[in-house]
Each structure stands twice: as C-alpha cells, then as structure tokens.
Amino acid sequence: MKKSLLASALAALTLAAVPAAQASTTSSFLLSPAPAPTDMPSPTDMTSPTDMPTSTDMASPGASASPVGPGCASLPTSGPGSAASMATEPVGTALAANPELSTLTKAVDAAGLTETLNSAKDVTVFAPTNAAFDKLPKETLDKLMGDKEQLTKVLQNHVVEGRKAPADLTTAPLTTLGGGSLTVTGSGEDLTVGEAKVLCGNLQTSNATVYLIDSVLVPGAESSATPSESAS
C-alpha cells in the first residue's frame, strides 16, 4: 500500500514538473532580446547629406523666367529660335538661330564679336530685329556694316552687364558696354528702351538675358537710330 502511494506521488510530481519546464522555456523566450536583423543597412550605406542635390545642381532662376512682350507669340514653339532652345545655348549662338535676327547676326560676325558674346558672363542684350535694321536706308546700313569700329560701338551700345529681369530695367539708367546710357520705361508687357519698343524680352540663354527690340540703338543717345546718326 505504501509503495503504491509512493509511486502515485512520484508520478504526480513528474507530471507537474513538465508544464513548469515548458513555462520556464516560454518565459525565457519572451524575456530574451530579439536578435538584431542582419540585413539592415549600416549608417555608411544610407544616403549622406553630401548626396543631396546642391544649389548648383538646381536650375537657375533665369531658367524658369517667362518671356514678356507683345511679340513673344511669334517665337517658334520648339526648335531653333524657341525660348527652350535659346536657354541651352550661349547668346551669340542663340541669336544666330533666330531667323528674325539674321541682320544682327551678320553685324555681330562682321564686328568679330560672336565669340565675345558667347564667352561673356551674365549680360543683357537688346537685340534689334531685321525690321529694326530695315528702318535704316540701305546705303546707311551698308556703310555701317563696312566700318568695323563704328559697328562695334553700335553693337556694344546694345549690351549691359548683369542679367536684367524686366523689374530691374527701370530702376536706373543702364550703362552699356560701349559707355552709353539707356533708360527703360514702362512695365509688364509694355517696355521701351530709349525709343525702341521691346517686342519680346526676358528670354534666357545660357549666359545672357535677351530683349528683342524694334529699333537700332544709337551710342551716346537714348533714341533709336536715324540715318544721319548712323552715318556719322
């Protein structure tokens, strides 16, 4: 009888020990820290601040500028002469691609200023259209084209330092590279340089801001060119 009771007691202790052991194992698992993932990127694998785009990688303010003026609608919408195409080229090359500026291009070539314009840094160019040159008598224009010194002076009177947005033009008289002075009046879509109307302006090239104008500007004066002034 005693042996039977002892056997029953030992069996009961054995059965009680099994759940306790399992509970101990479960508790140990829950309390143990989870192993760190091995596939997480290390700090050196993550993008550092130096990988972020810098200000020089972003488009310049000039690139997003909108052309202004009543003649902007006549610009090609794509290809050579368009605003988008001009923005990728230096100013001398950009002007040459516009068929409305072929006379100006010939004048720039005759004066040997194409590379000078292309290598200039941040300038504003007032570009007379073919119609602007057509206001001059043919003999006057021919004489000007044949006089490199005078032609250079005339062309330099159409260039000022700095990339001028429309709002910058009317703050003070502008000093040209030729030493002349230009006053711009008006605002918005209605701008006048001396007596020359801006047809389409705030056009961006890779190194300049361009304003297409309807008259040739005279060195040392704030008026459009007349036959007598151009021939002198």
Rank of each mutant, 00 (worst) to 15 (best):
S32E: 03
T152M: 15
A111H: 10
T176H: 12
D109E: 15
P35A: 13
K197S: 13
A208L: 06
K197P: 09
P219V: 04
L31A: 11
T192I: 08
T129D: 04
G179M: 01
V154M: 10
T205Q: 11
E149V: 12
T14A: 15
T77H: 00
V108P: 08
P173Y: 00
T176S: 09
S4C: 07
L75A: 09
E195M: 15
A17T: 07
K106R: 13
A131E: 13
R163I: 08
A221V: 01
T54P: 04
G186N: 11
G71T: 00
T54Y: 10
A196E: 10
T192D: 01
L30I: 14
L136A: 09
S119G: 07
A7W: 09
L136N: 09
K143L: 09
G71M: 08
A167T: 13
T50K: 13
D39A: 12
P76H: 08
K135F: 08
T44E: 13
V218R: 03
A83G: 06
T152R: 10
E100F: 00
A63R: 08
L113Q: 13
H158Y: 14
D142A: 06
P49I: 15
G146W: 03
A94R: 15
T176W: 04
L13V: 05
A167R: 10
A165D: 02
P90Q: 13
L13T: 07
Q204N: 15
L212K: 01
V216Q: 00
T205S: 14
E139Q: 11
G79L: 00
A63D: 05
T56W: 06
A96N: 07
S215D: 02
G201M: 06
K135T: 09
E195R: 12
L144S: 04
T171P: 02
S82M: 01
T183Q: 02
K135V: 05
G180T: 15
A83M: 00
T124F: 03
V68Y: 03
